[in-house]
């Protein structure tokens, strides 16, 4: 119990004093996760939108595959991407391994199915009357799509928030493809694992506090905006 209380005390001190090493790790994590989330959003939201609104053969199968890939372990994606970007891989000459780009590639692959699946769920919940109302008021296909996206904005935001939460807290991809290089690819989760291995809990707990606060903050922000439009 003492070790926990001691670690917590020094962790709070670290957080309050804005420790330089901790800040660097947090910045790397945020940078990588934000880029991954934006890229996955740019691909996943239109993909989900298309799948939700279009009828095509194999649609149900595709949705099942997407839902199944939500449970894909990060280490499997790490291995898969490693096979392509390691020196012997197809993209070996691009020298991507143990860079932030490598982590981003892995994380984007991890969360595209998540963003797509949650976007499909969000769009499917939108009453068809919104589409017909937009059309009868003279909207073309793009304007109608904008209306549907607008009405599904909270569901899509939830998808993005969930995707961000997934990447900022994952460790397998960051460790395998980033290599946990100090100041460069060391993220909050890989740093926490390293500190745990060393038996030094202060920084690990401090990073845990930051991670929890970030997740908590994002959810509060999301619920605040959502609440504004609830009756």
């Amino acid at each position: 119990m003492d070790i926990f209380v001691d670690s917590l005390q020094s962790a709070i001190l670290l957080v309050c004093s804005l420790d330089r090493e901790m800040l660097t790790i947090v910045m790397v994590s945020l940078q990588v996760s934000c880029v991954s989330t934006v890229l996955a959003g740019l691909v996943g939201v239109p993909t989900g939108f298309f799948i939700a609104l279009r009828r095509f053969p194999g649609k149900a199968m595709l949705i099942t595959v997407l839902n199944t890939s939500l449970a894909l372990p990060t280490v499997v994606i790490g291995l898969f991407v490693y096979a392509f970007i390691s020196r012997r891989g197809v993209f070996g000459p691009l020298d991507l391994l143990y860079t932030q780009k490598a982590i981003i590639i892995g994380q984007v692959i991890l969360i595209i199915p998540l963003v797509s699946a949650l976007t499909i769920a969000a769009i499917s919940r939108i009453d068809d009357r919104y589409r017909r109302t937009a059309m009868t008021l003279g909207a073309n296909r793009i304007q109608t799509a904008k209306v549907i996206l607008f009405e599904a904005r909270f569901g899509i935001t939830a998808a993005i928030v969930a995707a961000f939460g997934r990447v900022i807290s994952e460790i397998g991809i960051s460790m395998m493809l980033g290599g946990n290089i100090k100041g460069f690819t060391r993220t909050m989760t890989t740093a926490m694992a390293l500190e745990y291995d060393k038996g030094a809990f202060s920084l690990a707990v401090a990073l845990g506090i930051v991670l929890m606060t970030l997740s908590f903050g994002m959810n509060i922000l999301f619920h605040f905006f959502q609440g504004k439009y609830r009756t």
Partner: peptide
């Protein structure tokens, strides 16, 4: 643009009344 259908249970876009009325005019 010449015909408007009013649904039995009409929906308004989740924004202000003004923006709802402005939608078709902007188009």
């Amino acid at each position: 643009k010449e015909v408007v259908v009013l649904d039995q249970y009409p929906v308004l876009f989740t924004t202000s009344v003004y923006n709802n009325l402005e939608f078709g005019l902007k188009i």
